[in-house]
Amino acid sequence: MADQLTEEQIAEFKEAFSLFDKDGDGTITTKELGTVMRSLGQNPTEAELQDMINEVDADGNGTIDFPEFLTMMARKMKDTDSEEEIREAFRVFDKDGNGYISAAELRHVMTNLGEKLTDEEVDEMIREADIDGDGQVNYEEFVQMMTAK
């Protein structure tokens, strides 16, 4: 299944994987998964984290390695993001709930994920998604960005 991913997608997933893999040992533990999910405003229980890991832990060693992570991402993409997942993601970014993602809100979430971005990089990300040019990202623009192939 992971063989249907483009090189660009694999590179993006590698970057995402390293955000989860806090200690850089090449595997994601339940603790690391929990840290990232909490930084995104989720509050999973230990059991939920274990279930999430077990779902993709092909070799049964209790952690997720990069090939397992790729399989999980490929699977998720095949079920292409349901509207509800996209709306949920939008809410994570839209901290003040005004229906727009500002540069400050984007920077806040990315920083929580451990991504240190310059102001230019954040502005560039907003510009790429900002179709109507108002300097922020509304829900429609967010959907376009998330579903762009």
Results as ranks from 00 to 15, higher is better:
Glu83Lys: 10
Glu15Asn: 02
Leu33Ala: 14
Asp96Lys: 15
Pro67Asp: 07
Ala16Gly: 11
Asp23Tyr: 11
Glu120Arg: 01
Phe69Val: 08
Thr27Met: 10
Gln42Lys: 05
Val122Leu: 08
Asp123Gly: 12
Gln50His: 11
Val137Ser: 06
Ile86Leu: 15
Phe17Glu: 05
Gly24Tyr: 07
His108Cys: 03
Glu32Phe: 07
Glu88Gly: 10
Thr147Asp: 10
Asn61Leu: 03
Gln50Leu: 14
Arg91Pro: 05
Ala58Asp: 09
Lys95Tyr: 03
Asp79Glu: 10
Phe17Asp: 05
Asp79Phe: 08
Leu40Ile: 15
Glu128Trp: 08
Val56Met: 10
Ser39Thr: 10
Thr29Leu: 04
Ala16Asn: 00
Val122Phe: 02
Lys95Glu: 10
Gly41Leu: 06
Thr63Asp: 04
Thr30Val: 03
Asp132Cys: 05
Asp134Ser: 03
Asp132Pro: 00
Met52Ile: 11
Thr63Ser: 06
Glu115Thr: 04
Ile53Arg: 13
Leu19Gln: 13
Glu15Met: 02
Gly135Gln: 03
Glu12Trp: 07
Glu8Leu: 15
Glu8Lys: 07
Pro67Tyr: 00
Lys22Asn: 13
Glu85Cys: 07
Asp21Ala: 03
Met146Lys: 05
Phe17Pro: 00
Ala129Ser: 12
Lys116Leu: 14
Glu32Gln: 02
Ile28Ser: 08
Tyr100Ile: 07
Leu70Lys: 13
Leu70Phe: 06
Glu55Trp: 13
Lys149Ser: 07
Ser82Gly: 13
Ala104Lys: 03
Glu83Gly: 12
Glu46Asp: 09
Glu8Thr: 08
Asp119Ser: 14
Gly34Val: 05
Ile131His: 14
Val36Met: 09
Arg38Gly: 12
Lys31Gly: 09
Thr118Cys: 00
Ile86Val: 11
Ala74Glu: 02
Asp21Lys: 02
Asp51Gln: 08
Glu83Ile: 01
Gly133Val: 09
Asn61Ile: 09
Leu5Gln: 08
Gln9His: 11
Leu113Val: 05
Ser39Ile: 12
Glu84Gln: 08
Arg91Tyr: 15
Leu117Gln: 07
Asp94Ser: 00
Thr27Gln: 03
Thr27Cys: 02
Ser82Arg: 12
Gly34Ala: 04
Asp123Ala: 08
Glu121Ser: 00
Ala89Ile: 10
Ile53Asn: 04
Leu40Thr: 04
Asn138Ile: 13
Lys22Met: 05
Gly62Asn: 02
Ser39Asn: 06
Arg38Pro: 06
Glu83Thr: 01
Glu105Asn: 08
Ile126Met: 14
Glu85His: 04
Gly41Ile: 03
Arg38Thr: 12
Asp57Gly: 12
Asp23Leu: 00
Leu117Pro: 08
Glu141Gln: 03
Gly97Arg: 14
Ile131Met: 12
Thr80Pro: 12
Phe17Gln: 15
Gln42Phe: 10
Leu49Lys: 03
Ala47Lys: 08
Thr80Met: 12
Met37Ile: 12
Ser18Pro: 11
Asp79Cys: 14
Lys31Thr: 10
Thr71Asp: 01
Gly41Trp: 10
Thr111Met: 03
Glu12Leu: 03
Tyr100Val: 04
Glu83Arg: 01
Leu40Ser: 09
Lys78Asn: 06
Ile53Gln: 05
Lys95Asp: 02
Phe90Lys: 04
Phe13Val: 13
Phe20His: 05
Val56Gln: 13
Lys22Leu: 04
Asp94Arg: 01
Ala74Ser: 10
Gln136Ser: 05
Asn138Lys: 11
Asp130Arg: 03
Phe142Asp: 04
Glu105Gly: 11
Lys78Glu: 12
Asp25Tyr: 01
Ile53Val: 13
Arg87His: 10
Ser82Val: 08
Thr118Lys: 09
Glu32Ala: 14
Ile28Tyr: 10
Thr118Asn: 07
Asn43His: 14
Lys22Arg: 13
Gly26Glu: 03
Ala47Ile: 09
Gln144Val: 07
Asp23Gly: 13
Asp59Val: 09
Gly135Arg: 10
Gly135Glu: 10
Leu40Asn: 15
Leu19Lys: 15
Gln144Pro: 10
Phe93Arg: 04
Glu128Asp: 14
Val36Ala: 11
Gly97Ile: 05
Met72Leu: 14
Asp57Phe: 06
Ala103Gly: 10
Thr35Ser: 11
Ala129Ile: 00
Phe66Gly: 01
Asp57Thr: 08
Lys31His: 14
Phe17Cys: 01
Asn98Gly: 11
Arg75Ile: 12
Val56Phe: 03
Gly60Asp: 14
Arg91His: 07
Glu141Ser: 06
Gly97Pro: 00
Ile86Ser: 07
Arg87Leu: 08
Thr71Cys: 05
Met145Lys: 08
Lys78Pro: 00
Ala58Lys: 01
Glu128Thr: 06
Phe17Met: 01
Ile131Gln: 06
Arg87Glu: 14
Asn61Ser: 13
Lys95Asn: 05
Ser82Asp: 00
Gly114Val: 05
Ile101Thr: 08
Glu48Phe: 13
Val143Lys: 15
Asp51Cys: 00
Asp96Thr: 14
Arg87Thr: 06
Met125Lys: 01
Asp119Asn: 11
Glu55Asp: 11
Lys78Val: 00
Gly135Val: 07
Arg75Leu: 15
Met77Pro: 08
Glu115Tyr: 15
Asp94Ile: 04
Glu55Ile: 05
Asp134Thr: 15
Asp21Pro: 15
Leu117Met: 00
Ile101Trp: 01
Glu88Ala: 07
Met77Glu: 04
Gly62Pro: 01
Thr30Pro: 08
Asp81Lys: 03
Asn43Thr: 15
Glu120Lys: 08
Glu46Trp: 08
Glu124His: 05
Phe93Thr: 14
Arg91Gly: 02
Lys95Cys: 15
Asp81Pro: 02
Glu15Arg: 03
Thr45Lys: 13
Glu68Lys: 12
Glu84Asp: 13
Ala129Glu: 03
Thr71Glu: 03
Leu19Trp: 14
Pro67Met: 01
Asp21Trp: 13
Ala148Phe: 15
Ile131Leu: 12
Gln136Leu: 10
Val143Pro: 14
Val56Ser: 05
Lys78Arg: 12
Asp79Trp: 14
Ala74Phe: 02
Thr35Pro: 09
Glu140Leu: 02
Asn61Thr: 03
Arg75Ala: 10
Met145Leu: 06
Met77Phe: 06
Asp3Thr: 03
Glu46Pro: 15
Asp21Thr: 00
Thr27Leu: 03
Val137Asp: 04
Gly62Cys: 11
Ile64Phe: 13
Glu124Phe: 06
Leu106Ile: 14
Asp57Glu: 13
Glu120Ala: 14
Lys31Ile: 12
Gly62Tyr: 01
Phe17His: 08
Phe142Asn: 04
Ile10Leu: 11
Asp79Ser: 05
Phe69Glu: 06
Glu48Leu: 08
Met146Asn: 01
Thr63Cys: 03
Glu68Cys: 09
Phe90Thr: 06
Phe90Arg: 01
Glu32Lys: 11
Lys116Ala: 00
Arg87Met: 05
Thr29Lys: 13
Tyr100Gly: 15
Arg127Lys: 09
Asn43Arg: 15
Gly62His: 14
Met125Gly: 07
Gln136Glu: 12
Arg75Asn: 01
Ile28Ala: 03
Glu7His: 03
Asp134Gly: 11
Gly34Asn: 05
Ile10Arg: 03
Arg127Cys: 01
Gln9Pro: 05
Glu120Asp: 09
Ala129Trp: 04
Ala104Gly: 12
Glu68Tyr: 05
Leu5Pro: 11
Glu120Met: 03
Asp21Tyr: 10
Asp3Glu: 12
Gly135Ile: 03
Asp132Gly: 13
Thr111Ser: 08
Leu70Pro: 00
Thr35Leu: 05
His108Ser: 11
Ser82Ala: 14
Gln144Phe: 03
Pro44Ile: 05
Tyr139Thr: 04
Met146Ala: 07
Ala58Ile: 02
Glu12Ser: 06
Leu5Val: 09
Glu83Phe: 03
Thr71Leu: 15
Glu115Cys: 06
Glu128Asn: 00
Phe90Leu: 07
Asp65Ala: 10
Ile10Asp: 03
Leu70Gln: 02
Ser39Pro: 12
Gly60His: 15
Ile131Glu: 00
Glu88Asn: 15
Tyr139Gly: 00
Phe17Arg: 00
Asp51Phe: 15
Gln136Tyr: 02
Glu46Ser: 03
Leu5Arg: 07
Leu49Glu: 15
Ile10Pro: 14
Phe17Tyr: 05
Lys14Val: 01
Pro44Phe: 08
Thr45Gln: 15
Thr147Val: 15
Ile86Thr: 12
Glu7Arg: 09
Ala2Cys: 06
Pro67Asn: 02
Leu117His: 01
Lys149Ala: 10
